[in-house]
Amino acid sequence: MPNQMYKRHDRSDIFIHWFNAACWILLLLTGVGLIQHSAIDPFGSGYPEALRAMVGGGGNLLTIHEGIGLLWILGFVFYLIVNFKGAKFFLSEVFPVSPERDVPWLFKKMALMTIGPKVLKDPTLPDQGYYNMGQKVFAQASVVGGIVIAVTGIIMWLSDRSLGAEAVGIVSWSIFLHFIGVGLVFAGLLVHIYMAAISPEERPGFMSMFTGVVPGDYAKHHHRLWWEKIKTENK
């Protein structure tokens, strides 16, 4: 039996994933350049200085960052209009967590990936659904973090356009939340990038972000519950 391919992602899903990825990288690069404070900036003041000099000043960098940020938000609005069902499906798959299956999976997986199977009495991983728990954790963080980042970003963007002096507290806390949100999502993003793009075992998953489909044995091995479900549906 040839390795049957199963459809995993819609074209709009693929688009929004890579659109988001591109925006995030650019926003991260420009955003870090907007922080210039010895107690905060991640790589010292050299990076913001260099970046600002490159674009002709901090003001320009801010404009660029704001522009990309707005584009990113518009991109999501566009996606929601085009594929609202897909978004709903995504959220319904990402947020429910099974304590008996998902939680052990996460800890076992972390141990397996970093130290090896020897530390575990029983290295077999519980079966996973459409998303495994690692993907869920990152997706949850991305959704919540993304909303926080977008909302606080809009507040900051409005600050010197339409907000009055009474709003400075909200604006200032928005800066903090924006920073925290990005920091936490970025921490997850590193793992996500490794797992998806560098680690060989997820290679078919990575490819599916271009093709939209995964091979059956991959689905069976990695997302058994989903594989079983679609297999029965397909019959």
Binding site: L61, D160, S172, I175, F179
Partner: peptide, 24 residues
């Protein structure tokens, strides 16, 4: 947080870069 206000190295004046300040 952004260095929109800074002490100018050349003149010693404390400056606000209007373009970078968002009025937080």
């Amino acid at each position: 947080p952004t260095g929109a206000t800074y002490k100018d190295k050349e003149t010693g004046a404390v400056i606000i870069n209007d373009a970078l300040c968002i009025g937080c």
